[in-house]
């Protein structure tokens, strides 16, 4: 349907104007409005162009979430903003995981099934290998965003000590976990039918690495981390956009991913910190050679 693609394009342009608007005080409020308009277009377009089997439930879900979000945003103290943003990131990460799970549970609805003929000549429908890679990546990045943001929230909110927690051999553990996720993703794409335990293990490992990446970072450096996690949430949305062949999610995910990364880079530069060590997880702490 060309109208859907067109509406998603308009939403994408609104989001670009929102990010651009927020760069300067004079245009910042208009920018925020553009963001709201873009999101409304994206949501309404999705709702009117799909055969909705459960409109009341969806309405209730939006009402519940919207009320909670609005009330929190109104009541929270201005000094608690950084941890609030961190908490919001964790929700996006978790939502990405849920969408990936839904795509895995109901691949037919997303049009990502392909025919597969096993050695005995029996033909079955399986999730296409490319979609499996996108799905696993989206779920993994979402999970990292979730657990990382939860730690960032706990540190900023003072529920957890802001002091860096240094595990021995942490770089080896992190690298090993990352390699395991990549290897499992490759296996997940190649094994038919897509095994459930692999998807589950990728998720668990991703939750663990999100935790491991953020615990060595000191509380004072958290704003940069929050911005980096913001970037991750964008990449997760983009990966799920690839799975669902949805241009709104791809355009917006890429925008958020790239601009979030640049914003963290700008913040790092302002604080005279190394950008690479943010991603490597150990930012703001002396490397003990572990």
């Amino acid at each position: 349907n060309p109208w859907v693609a067109l509406a998603y394009l308009v939403a994408g342009v609104c989001f670009i104007l929102a990010l651009r608007g927020l760069s300067s005080p004079a245009t910042s409020r208009a920018g925020n409005r553009y963001g709201m308009i873009g999101m409304t277009i994206a949501v309404v377009t999705t709702l009117i162009t799909h055969d909705i089997a459960s409109l009341p439930e969806i309405g209730i879900a939006i009402a519940i979430g919207g009320t909670i979000g609005f009330v929190i945003a109104r009541k929270i103290a201005m000094t608690a903003m950084p941890q609030l943003v961190a908490a919001f990131h964790s929700l996006v990460g978790l939502a990405a995981v849920l969408v990936a799970g839904a795509a895995y549970a109901n691949p037919g609805a997303f049009g990502i099934l392909v025919s597969h003929i096993d050695p005995t000549g029996l033909e079955t429908l399986v999730i296409s290998p490319v979609s499996r890679i996108e799905m696993a990546l989206g779920a993994a990045i979402g999970a990292i965003t979730f657990s990382g943001s939860v730690i960032a929230f706990l540190k900023l909110n003072g529920n957890m000590s802001g002091a860096p927690i240094m595990l021995p051999m942490r770089h080896v553990i992190n690298l090993g976990t990352l390699v395991a996720i990549i290897v499992l993703t490759a296996l997940f794409a190649m094994t038919d039918p897509a095994p459930e335990w692999m998807f589950g293990t990728i998720l668990v490992l991703a939750f663990v690495i999100g935790f491991l990446l953020i615990i060595p970072i000191g509380g004072a450096d958290m704003p940069v981390v929050v911005s980096m996690l913001n970037s991750y949430s964008g990449w997760a949305a983009a990966a799920m956009g690839f799975t669902l062949h949805n241009t709104a999610m791809i355009i917006t995910g890429a925008l958020v991913g790239a601009s979030g990364a640049i914003l963290s880079y700008i913040m790092c530069r302002a604080m005279n910190r190394s950008f690479i060590s943010v991603i490597a997880g150990g930012f703001g702490a002396e490397d003990t050679g572990g």
């Binding site: 999705t46 799909h50 943003v85 949430s233 949305a237 799920m240 999610m249």
Partner: peptide, 16 residues
């Protein structure tokens, strides 16, 4: 605002 925009993931959740 970037955080709010990243909730475009709602499109995927709505489809699901």
């Amino acid at each position: 605002v970037t955080n709010a925009i990243s909730s475009v993931i709602i499109v995927g959740a709505l489809i699901a």
